[in-house]
Design a protein around this nucleic acid. Structure first.
Lengths: 408, 408
DNA sequence: ATCTGATTTCTCGACTGTCGAGAAAAAAGC
DNA sequence: GCTTTTTTCTCGACAGTCGAGAAATCAGAT
């Protein structure tokens, strides 16, 4: 059921529009905001006055006046309005970034991922978080949001990692990362979901609007997938289905997750290693494979080693079959491949195409566009910012108490 | 990018809310509408006065007054405001239904599906449509929408059948169904999509809101799947992925669609027949299998015939594997099974569960709820009404010119 | 027959919001 | 110093929602 609408909601939505325009295009003048949002000039005056009074945006220092006419007044986010902490968890380390409200990176450091169980893990993140704010002497209260990303399966709604490559079925609850005295919220998202979101936003910036739906496939020790699409209302919807552990072959090779025949058990780094060395497919997979090992196998494959070639081929077919199923169930869309595995795209490509080509969806609508976007960490960070600031802006607008004009 | 908002849009959305409440619950009094929508009584007065002046709703004839106090004035849709024509295409016949704006069925007849190509097919529908309005002597102009359903793959946006069991890759364009002099629009939807939509609406009527996402699986000569979910804004999103022709087994049995290894090539009626009679899997499948044939095989299976049992078992495994992939890619959700194939659910069940159980998603989140809903035609019709009237109401509200109070 | 209480509908004024037009501001050019 | 140009700001008109209370109308008590 739809929610009722009211004039106050109109103001909220239009304020959100103004903040989104500022987010997307940086400093803007009154008239530019009007153009970007389609709102009347008078409305922009009202909204910007409101937001300025609430100390959310501010007039920039005058820039060199270009041309004649009354000089423009540029609005931008007030940097000190609040802060965002980004936590990117990868297999071996955890990266912490501090970002101000205008989206500029203020501080960044990484820590190795310690040993120990989930409790110790959460505690170490909690401690690092204290260090982030201490280093920049930022008040706890001005941290608006903590955005965490990891590989694995995320609970819909709660910031809980339901399944992860490292902790398996042992759930990791990030609500406890923030102790007392932190008014901020924590959000947790799958890494490849953020990649898909970042790619969709990049598409939106292209002229003509770019693709309206896309999939991001991350190749590495594990296999990640994110789907991003713009719905009829123009809102981005992003999700991270459990692609890596979707069934590839019934009763197939043993996967890290304990099930059999997952895509990852054919296309993950450990799977390529297992196949190249002709280890039986029901061997318990290696916990971690250094990327150098995979590079070595790839080099052998390129020199003509049949088993190494076969391993990459099989990985490609698993991915291709999986992608064909993705297209069958989610509609035709371009696929962007990222992650460390893209180094060996030349060895995977033929298998992927073979795996795709047999199926009806590809016969009907053709091979999907496959592009390689190597720099995954940038995409992840970009996705963090997109998602986090859209939530922060929304929260600010919703929470802002009604502020009357000064004279009242 | 979000669209700008304005006070006029607020009225539109709230008008839509009033019409939706009337749609869902039938005749309502002023106060009941207020309760259902959450809008203030004064607002209801304004909106109903507007809609009444536009001759979209009307005050019902007084019903027996119950209790003391000022008698209620019940509002309902004005029946003669416009009409909907529903066309349900099935493998052997086409059913035409005429429905008034209040949702009551006025006329219904079926015609056998003729021979001939797509042009003849479209022409015969066009002729039947003329007959629908002639029989009830309805003006062409008062037909607001024609809603068509069929099995097969529908073009997103245009009313074009991209792939169908009967015409294969030859596209069927339903825009031509309405000739000149028909202001109405034509929409085309996959049959099982409508089923999923109807089931979601039934869930919404349960107290507590029922399921927020579900899948409908239709078993018959071909395999259909619809997914319906309520998004964060509470709007239903329904889709019909190409489940029947999703890859089940690479290089597997030959399917009607020309590809190999589709789910349908293992679980469709013709596939069950082919397996039960041990016909080679690359035999070109029968165009049409009478349901009696399948019933016969089912009877044999129930009497202990191994090959017949095996055929149903394999069909079940194909469905189960496919459903596991569905859950992997769309999240965990209950599955409602419908269609003529549900008669033999007892023979399929074990295979479905086997096909589901091997995978990570089921190990993590458990077996999805599987329920059988035998009466598919009712669900299809219900889905037609839900979808068609939501479009009609939307159109009416958007197209309605601004109507001033009488005195101006 | 009339009064009273209950219940629903209707109406009025206050408030919030958007928009267009034009006034005001401020710099560049002559 | 005046004009031109461009941008910002302000004002009044208009659309919409809401709460409060008036008006309508019936059932039952007196």
């Amino acid at each position: 059921m739809l929610a009722k609408s009211s004039t106050e909601l109109v103001r909220q939505q239009n304020s959100a529009l103004v903040l989104a325009a500022l987010r997307r295009r940086g400093r803007l003048a009154h008239t530019e905001i009007s153009d970007a949002t389609g709102l009347a000039s008078a409305t922009i005056s009202a909204i910007t006055a409101d937001l300025e009074r609430a100390r959310i945006i501010e007039k920039s220092e005058q820039q060199a006046t270009a041309g004649r006419g009354r000089p423009r007044v540029l609005f931008s986010q007030r940097r000190t309005c609040g802060y965002l902490v980004v936590i990117s968890i990868s297999s071996d380390s955890i990266q912490y970034s501090l970002v101000d409200y205008a989206g500029t990176l203020l501080d960044r450091f990484a820590e190795p991922r310690g040993e120990g169980g989930t409790d110790a893990f959460v505690a170490s993140i909690s401690a690092a978080l204290e260090r982030v704010v201490a280093r920049s002497s930022i008040d706890h209260d001005s941290v608006l949001l903590v955005s965490v990303s990891s590989k694995g399966l995320v609970h819909p709604g709660k910031p809980v990692l339901v399944w992860s490559p490292v902790f398996g079925l042992q759930p990791v609850d990030f609500t406890e990362v923030l102790g007392r005295g932190w008014p901020a919220r924590v959000i947790l998202n799958n890494e490849t979901l953020l990649v898909a979101g970042a790619l969709l936003e990049r598409e939106a910036k292209k002229e003509g609007g770019g693709e309206r739906a896309l999939a991001a496939l991350s190749l590495g020790h594990s296999i990640g997938l994110g789907i991003a699409r713009r719905n009829a209302a123009g809102v981005a919807e992003i999700s991270a289905p459990n692609f890596g552990h979707m069934l590839h072959i019934p009763n197939g090779g043993l996967c890290r997750c304990g099930a059999r025949g997952c895509i990852e058990a054919y296309a993950g780094f450990y799977a390529i290693l297992r196949m190249a060395f002709e280890v039986p497919m029901d061997t318990i997979p290696a916990k971690f494979v250094p990327i150098a090992e995979i590079d070595k196998i790839a080099a052998q494959a390129r020199q003509g080693n049949r088993m190494a070639q076969f391993a990459f081929r099989q990985a490609g077919v698993a991915l291709g079959n999986g992608l064909s199923r993705l297209l069958s169930l989610h509609g035709h869309m371009p696929v962007f491949i990222t992650g460390p595995g893209t180094r060996h795209q030349d060895l995977l490509q033929a298998g992927i195409e073979e795996g795709l080509s047999q199926t009806q969806v590809v016969r009907l609508e053709g091979m999907p566009a496959l592009s390689v976007v190597p720099d995954e960490p940038s995409l992840v960070f970009e996705g963090h910012l997109n998602l986090a600031f859209s939530i922060i802006d929304q929260d600010i607008i919703l929470s802002r108490p009604h502020i009357r004009a000064a004279g009242e």
